[in-house]
Amino acid sequence: MPQVQLRSLVQARSGDKGNTVNIAVFARNEALYELLLRELTAERVKEHFGGMVIGEVTRYPVPKLLAMNFVCRGALGGGGSASMRMDNLGKCYAANLMRLEIEVGETNTNLSQS
């Protein structure tokens, strides 16, 4: 099964609130969105960030925007002004998620086309 890095498929932005990071991921079309709903689960994201996210990861789908919001708790080593990390505001979490590879299967649709 072909594996594709999210980098070539989605838009994503991350931000912080306290020790929590949220990552919003956007698909360009419904075919990709369906695929993400199946492949990009909260468990998968939690596993990806092993060692960086201590708490739980919750996924909130927003189908009308072809979007999903991942809320990662215990993600910043204490949070903005208490963290020792260089990325103390979690701005790079979304970029980091782009490394994740998902199985795209056999498809005729161009998944990165809007």
Binding site: Q11, A12, R13, K17, T20, A24, Y60, K64, A67
Partner: peptide, 30 residues
């Protein structure tokens, strides 16, 4: 495309963003 990235920025549950003036639900936003 640029605006939608801000839409969910630092929001947790998109159907219930708590603010003092109303609880905001962005799940039907176009």
């Amino acid at each position: 495309d640029t605006v939608k990235e801000q839409l969910l920025y630092e929001i947790h549950d998109p159907s219930a963003y708590m603010t003092p003036d109303a609880v905001l639900d962005v799940t039907n936003v176009r």
